[in-house]
Design a protein around this nucleic acid. Structure first.
Length: 934
RNA sequence: GGGCGAUUAGCUCAGCUGGUUAGAGCGCCUCACUCACAUUGAGGAGGUCAUAGGUUCGAGUCCUAUAUCGCCCACCA
């Protein structure tokens, strides 16, 4: 990297992209100890993450920014810890979602439907779409700083993964865990495909509960029945009542007539009927309702499908054939009314099932589909978490996970789509030219299927492949191992599997995580990862979900690179944002966004993103830049780092001896912070880790140490200057390392400008993670005292409105602390703006200045003789207030120490309380003495 | 109907295994642009930690209810 001079502000726009390219070019995203390279050492344990593959639908949203922030943090942290680290990138074909996008695009741009194009041609468009948006997404991941190994990038429909999918299918099929069957499934009439239970979302919507009379055969009597979907009456095959319902018991066993159609159906008794609801009598439509399907099965009722693939009434609906389901509802109800069978209509809130993707109302339908027999897989997956082979963070999601798996139903995996993995089953084509679904040949390839078929039926057999494709989550379920080469025993698979952490949003715990665990255990015999870390969803600053309808969608690229007001408006998704930022959003940089996402929330909880917060973190990046600018521009041309000085300090605490108080304090703080940040990261508490490093850099390092260092740097003691410079560079170096996983760009950019130690790597991204060292407790306490004195003086100055630049005299009476405090007089005068020549630091003082403002800090007294500014009455009042506060504190402490506290509380806690009391008493004595003097 | 989460400063949120005077950012008030940074520095105001009980020497933190908001799961027609 060239070493340019240090501009005043950090220009992240150009630097971020430059640095990323440089890292990638140097191969630092690739794992060290790559099993495909010579010199590979199998004994070193790798750290591996498989990326949650983004859908190739072309939208980068804040959810992506979230997972990249967390995963890249983990990857960079472990890389710096020296572990062979691999992050496998990739993308997901996302069956329904992508097919819908492509269909929409084709209709818009070419005015054709997929049916008009035909399967092959349509798939060509899908692939073109994938190439375009897949690449956009990869670019965006790079922009976010994702340090993944691009040489291993995978796509769920590429050859290798397709092979994995076929292998998985064939194995499950042969094991009897995949079957084709006629079941009641969730049908999406808009998408014209089956969907799984998980792809159905329920929303409470206003509806109508229709009450009507179910006529009985050969009778004037009727059974009152209520329904929300009158059109399904056409498919009724029974009417059910509760066996013990006195109102209806006498009807059981009689025959009812489907209104209008006059089809004869039995009146049955079933425990599942809720006597309280509606009329207490239930119409049974096994063909279009899940409860009814079960009841029907119990009573061996026939199943009638009255709706077809497009939710239009079938021939079974008699005169209503061909009508759309909602049209049929109206017409049929009108006819019931005309027939005098209507009782009433009542407004009702219905939990309406809707398609997750298409949004239209799901219709339960009887259909022949492929299913995975899931119970055996689920049991293994439950055990893996139960016995700790997999840990879920945060832990509460384990309960959710168990609950879902314990009540799981077979997984419908066939989709009537074109974009996806075609089901590897071929059917024998019969004499009539139609496939015989009973004659199934499940194989990896068509050739293999033919081989099987010929062995059974002779050489002339004709086959036809199942037209359906697999649920997109079937292939994602294999992701952690399919991306490493499975089913082949590749070097990657052997070395990098099982992966380490699966990091993703809690919203896909069932869709994806649970299925990876089930399929991973089934096919590899091992858990696919040892830890699941679930992050929350990114919401707007008021906690609302980001949605086009609200108009509060924030595109992460706007935050990173800035955006003009008119472009926000043009997006069509963000009217509210456009209104709030008519002049657009200033570029804040990737680091600022990442740091915000990592520190504004807690694991598993949703995060409300506010741009103000990102802005303040942009300021933090600027702070990092400028503290470095100060340090680097203060180094002489011939500066070299002194490793020996610092190496010595990593030994015993006494090794701090050659250093000044601020030096010892800073190093001690640094060592504390290193230990804490490391601990927090190991516990997946990224927010706390980041905030701690932030506080250290800004409040300790910049605000205090750098300020005190200026005194030495402006002085003439060359040895002291060298020592301070060495320390400044060292602490900055270490802090940059701590911050690198959070804000990789700024830290690398700055680190490149620092002088190196021999043996340092060429880049921060591969620099070793800092080691915690000794902590000098005395230095911590002394510097804290010094800080308190300076703050106290500043406080009084501000209160008394002393001009900021005015140097004032001060007398500090410090008892035994006077000795060391005297050595810090330069710091006190510089930071509290005291006149050097009139600063007295003494053990005792008999004649205390009367005309002065007094400050008591622990056992130390400070007197500021502010001529003409001291109002004795005000001074007395101020001290009285101080006295009252101290007395209250003392009373509280005394009470505590006189209680059972001393027996029950741990010794250090009691000790701390005693020390606190002693200090407060001392302070009070001083304040009282001062009051007497006045 | 079950389950989960949240409720802490004006706003958005931290607060790890219970232990000093409950913190941060933004916003607000006072002051300061000469030497890293006004994307700054110094000082300040602001909180009965949703409510009621309980456990404990000690509760924002643990337990039990309640309220409000949000989410997930479930076949109430």
């Amino acid at each position: 990297m060239p070493k340019p001079d240090f501009p005043k502000t950090y220009d992240f726009q150009s630097i971020e992209q430059e640095l990323y390219a440089w890292w990638e070019r140097n191969g630092w995203f690739r794992p060290t100890n790559d099993p495909n390279e010579p010199g590979h050492d199998p004994s070193r344990k790798p750290f591996v993450i498989s990326i949650p593959p983004p859908n190739v639908t072309g939208e980068l949203h804040l959810g992506h920014a979230m997972f990249v922030s967390v995963e890249d943090l983990l990857i960079r942290y472990h890389r710096m810890k020296g572990e062979p680290t691999l992050w496998v990138p990739g993308s997901d074909h996302a069956g329904i979602a992508t097919q819908l996008q492509v269909e929409k695009m084709l209709l818009r741009e070419k005015g054709v439907t997929r049916e008009e194009l035909g399967r092959e041609k349509f798939l060509e468009y899908c692939w073109a779409w994938k190439d375009k948006y897949g690449n956009i997404i990869y670019d965006q991941l790079r922009r976010l700083g994702a340090s993944c190994d691009w040489s291993r990038v995978r796509f769920t429909l590429d050859d290798g993964l397709s092979e994995a999918v076929r292998e998985a299918f064939v194995r499950l099929y042969r094991k009897g865990l995949i079957y084709r069957g006629v079941r009641l499934i969730n049908w999406s009439p808009g998408l014209k495909t089956a969907v799984s239970d998980l792809e159905v979302e329920y929303s409470e919507e206003p509806a109508t509960l229709y009450y009507f009379k179910y006529p009985l055969k050969d009778s004037d009597e009727y059974l009152p029945v209520a329904t929300t979907r009158p059109e399904t009456i056409l498919g009724d095959t029974a009417v059910a009542v509760h066996p013990e319902d006195p109102r209806y018991r006498r009807f059981i066993g009689r025959t009812a007539l489907v209104p209008i159609l006059n089809r004869e159906i039995p009146v049955i008794a079933d425990e599942a009927v809720d006597r309280e609801f509606g009329t207490g009598a239930l119409k049974i439509t096994p063909g279009h309702d899940f409860t009814d399907y079960e009841i029907g099965a119990r009573h061996k009722l026939p199943i009638i499908s009255v709706l077809d693939r497009e939710a239009k009434v079938t021939a079974a609906g008699g005169p209503y054939q061909g009508l759309d389901r909602f049209e049929a509802r109206e017409r049929y109800w009108a006819d019931l009314k005309a027939a005098g069978l209507v009782i009433k209509e009542q407004p009702y809130t219905r939990n309406t099932p809707r398609s997750q993707r298409g949004g239209e109302i799901i219709e339960p339908m009887v259909s022949e589909q492929w299913f995975v027999k899931i119970k055996p897989l689920a049991e293994a997956a439950i055990a893996a978490v139960r016995d700790g082979r997999i840990r879920i963070v945060p832990e509460r999601f384990e309960k959710v996970y168990f609950n879902w798996l314990e009540n799981i139903k077979d997984w419908c995996i066939s989709r009537q789509l074109w974009w996806g993995h075609r089901i590897p089953v071929w059917y024998r084509v019969g004499a009539d030219g139609r496939p015989d679904y009973a004659e199934q040949f499940c194989a990896h390839t068509e050739a293999e299927a033919y081989e099987q078929a010929r062995a059974k039926h002779g050489p002339d057999v004709k086959l036809e492949q199942d037209p359906d494709v697999l649920d997109t989550w079937f292939s994602s379920g294999l992701w952690p191992f399919s991306t490493l080469g499975w089913p082949h025993a590749t070097a990657d698979l052997r070395y990098f599997y099982p992966t380490s952490v699966m990091e993703t949003g809690y919203d896909i715990l069932f869709f994806w995580v649970a299925r990876m665990i089930m399929l991973g255990l089934e096919f590899t015999g091992e858990v696919p990862f040892h830890t699941v870390y679930l992050h929350g969803l990114v919401r707007d600053e008021y906690g609302r979900k980001m949605s086009k309808t609200i108009g509060n969608v924030v595109d992460p690229r706007w935050i990173i690179g800035g955006v003009k007001g008119e472009d926000i408006a043009k997006s069509g998704t963000s009217d509210e944002v456009a209104k709030k930022y008519p002049n657009g959003i200033a570029a804040l940089g990737t680091d600022a966004l990442r740091f915000t996402l990592l520190t504004s929330g807690t694991p598993g909880n949703d995060l409300n993103l506010s741009l103000e917060r990102v802005e303040s973190n942009r300021n933090f990046a600027n702070k990092i830049w400028n503290i470095a600018r100060f340090i680097v521009t203060n180094l002489p041309a011939d500066f070299t780092r002194d490793a020996r000085q610092l190496a010595a300090n990593h030994g015993q605490p006494s090794a701090f001896s050659g250093l000044s108080l601020p030096d010892r304090w800073l190093l001690s703080r640094l060592h504390q912070v290193i230990a804490e940040v490391t601990r927090f990261l190991d516990n997946y508490e990224f927010g706390q880790a980041g905030n701690l490093a932030y506080e250290f850099l800004w409040s300790d390092f910049a605000d205090w140490y750098v300020e005190t260092s200026k005194i030495t740097l402006q002085g003439s003691d060359e040895a002291a200057k060298a020592r301070v410079r060495n320390l400044l560079v060292h602490v900055l170096d270490q802090t940059l390392r701590l911050l690198h996983p959070f804000v990789p760009f700024i830290t690398e950019a700055v680190w490149q400008k620092l002088p190196r130690l021999p043996g340092d790597p060429p880049a921060l991204i591969i620099a070793p993670w800092p080691q915690a060292g000794p902590v000098d407790a005395e230095a911590l306490a002394d510097f804290e005292h010094l800080r308190a004195l300076v703050r106290g003086i500043r406080n009084i100055r501000a209160e008394k409105r002393v001009e900021v630049t005015k140097r004032i005299p001060a007398i500090i009476v410090a008892g035994e602390k006077a000795g060391w405090l005297r050595h810090q007089s330069a710091i006190i005068s510089a930071l509290a703006k005291i006149d050097d020549s009139r600063l007295m630091i003494v053990e005792h003082l008999n004649d205390k200045p009367k005309n002065a403002v007094a400050l008591v800090e622990g056992a130390t007294e400070v007197y500021l003789p502010l001529e003409g500014m001291v109002d004795l009455n005000a001074e007395r009042a101020r001290l009285e207030k101080e006295l009252a506060a101290l007395s209250a504190q003392i009373a509280k402490s005394e009470g505590l120490l006189a209680s059972n506290f001393v027996n029950k509380a741990p010794a250090p806690v009691v000790e701390r309380e005693r020390a606190k009391l002693a200090a407060a008493r001392e302070s009070r004595a001083k304040v009282e003495a001062r009051l007497r003097e006045l």
